[in-house]
């Protein structure tokens, strides 16, 4: 089954991806992040036609707890965050918990 790539974020963030041909995108203005970001993210996560969700690392902060947890653990679709540096996100925490040591030290 072929799937698409979806981009969620500010119009500035999504514009470039549209230039690369991404069709599925959710624009959320910077000022509306608190109200609209949750719904936007949930709608792409629930879309079976979406295989990869691209988000900016900063936007993750604005998500509510449950949605954030889904973003961090979701495998289908998988969420890739940009702009957060190497040791970013929940993955590092998960590694610490599972292996017992921090393997992502820079």
């Amino acid at each position: 089954m072929s799937q698409e790539i979806a981009v969620v974020g500010s119009p500035d963030f999504t514009a470039g991806f549209r230039l690369a041909g991404v069709r599925r995108f959710e624009n959320v203005q910077d000022g509306e992040r608190a109200e609209r970001l949750d719904d936007a993210v949930t709608s792409v996560l629930d879309d079976a036609g979406v295989g990869i969700v691209v988000m900016h690392d900063e936007d993750i902060e604005y998500l509510s707890r449950t949605v954030r947890q889904r973003v961090e653990t979701s495998v289908e679709p998988v969420v890739v965050t940009l702009g957060g540096g190497t040791g970013s996100g929940n993955l590092r925490e998960q590694i610490k918990r599972a292996i017992g040591i921090d393997l992502m030290e820079e």
Binding site: E4, G21, G51
Partner: peptide
Amino acid sequence: AVRGAAAALKEHPEITS
């Protein structure tokens, strides 16, 4: 112009897993 170019795209990336 950038938006126009983006809107004109015909091919869209697809992924299969």
